[in-house]
Design a protein around this nucleic acid. Structure first.
Lengths: 252, 252
DNA sequence: ACGAAAATGTTGAATTTTGTTGATTTCAGT
DNA sequence: ACTGAAATCAACAAAATTCAACATTTTCGT
């Protein structure tokens, strides 16, 4: 069992297919090494080999949603690790949709006995198949943007639960306005989750502190003092006031 | 119980895998010491050792469901191709849980404008993120066996719909009894789906025609004459009577 | 403070992994 | 089918890691 095993699996699972050369650069080793250490993985059927690349045998591939997951991938993985380190075995967690939340779900596969409620089918299917987890999928009608539900039944499921943590994300952070998203329905779900959770964990990579091409206009519900913000670089000083009473963690 | 124990565990858990040298620098001790104090952790199963590094055992290891997807993978892929070829763009489909259905979902990513209802979170998240698809997730409480739902709301969602095709699977085929599964709830869902579908597609790879180690005892609802059975090898002659009035296709 | 026991560091040989080279195979375009 | 570019494979040398044994330091009870 090679030390690169999990990294290769993760990279290939995440992107569907990735070239041998790219993997070698990613892990900082030679292409030959990639070929060598991936051999057992293709023999066990986890991966397939094509000329020039490895392809995942187990995950959905290509569509736009997964493209977004590859944006700032390293930052998101680091944040996900930090968030997962915070959440212990047997915790209960509400998880919203969004690519960072997707990574956090992946990192949470390491936990045992989680109770999870989410409106994202991706998060649900990631965590549901871990033995011992109890996962509730909130909502029925899934939007194609990201496979998340925002219908009435989603709220009904969320309102029935009370959890230790809620994992939230945002599309942008504004020094005055706070954490912004694009759709009102996302705010509504976040609100419902926060009302039924002890502590909020807001996960935003560093790019969210910069202006976006399509500026989101809707404010996420205000965080309580003591709620957690996880990011991967120290935010610019302009955000000091906003983050003042929150527990800020920088993941590396 | 060494004084470094918890630090090593935390670091390795956090990052998934971390090199012995790096750990030694992190804790300010020699590499040999790391090897020595990590030995009990390896023996107790918390960590694994690879050449040059320690890896966390609580990290994403293949959950059973994904293992099952790798069983008879080629047969299932062939069947999935055949099933997907049958189902055109803009069709409406109900899909049950089961690993073969998972592959069919993957093959259906090539279709456009599908309307899908499924009680499997895996199928839902696979197809929901295809632009233009309308996917309904039936059910809330997901079982860890395969991430599928069988609660009352699952039935309510299925009963509301009427679709062109229903894609079903079975754990075993018996020449007398027909298509068998392990759980009554699976039969119930199949029944609900069949009542609300024009035509059934039963997908079973060749291994299902052989006796299983754990024999399933529950009969799927009877197929109508003209319903489809897709498999990947000609079934043994003993099954001729069973398949008599059904439309049998052999995928290669 | 003393000595025994445990823990840590150091060394060098054995083992494993890695990068490089050149021959061979595969792939895409004519 | 032919050709050049790219990818794979096999083999070997170089580098890194491990292991075992011993020297040294730290810890702890008396």
């Amino acid at each position: 069992m090679s030390k690169y095993r999990s990294q290769i699996l993760q990279a290939v699972d995440m992107r569907g297919t990735v070239s041998v050369i790219e993997l070698s650069r990613l892990l900082g080793v030679s292409d030959q090494t990639i070929r060598r250490v991936s051999q057992p993985l293709v023999e066990s059927g986890d991966l397939s080999k094509v000329h020039g690349a490895l392809v995942s045998n187990r995950m959905p591939t290509d569509p736009p949603f997964l493209d977004r997951m590859n944006l700032n991938r390293e930052a998101k993985v680091a944040i996900a690790r930090a968030a997962a380190a915070l959440i212990g075995d047997h915790a209960s967690v509400a998880i919203d949709t969004g690519s960072t939340s997707g990574f956090i779900a992946q990192a949470l596969r390491a936990r045992k006995g989680l109770t999870v409620v989410t409106n994202s089918a991706f998060v649900a299917s990631t965590l549901a198949i871990i033995p011992g987890n109890k996962v509730s999928m909130a909502g029925t009608q899934l939007r194609d943007h990201d496979g998340a539900a925002f219908d009435r039944s989603a709220f009904e499921v969320i309102e029935r639960m009370h959890v230790d943590y809620v994992v939230l994300s945002a599309s942008m952070v504004d020094a005055q306005a706070g954490f912004l998203v694009h759709e009102q329905c996302e705010v509504d779900i976040a609100n419902a989750m926060m009302r039924n959770a002890q502590r909020a964990v807001m996960a935003v990579d560093h790019s969210k502190f910069e202006p976006q091409d399509r500026r989101p206009a809707l404010r996420q519900p205000e965080l309580k003092p003591g709620d957690l913000v996880i990011t991967n670089r120290a935010p610019p000083p302009a955000f000091a006031a906003l983050l003042d009473r929150l527990d800020l963690r920088i993941a590396t």
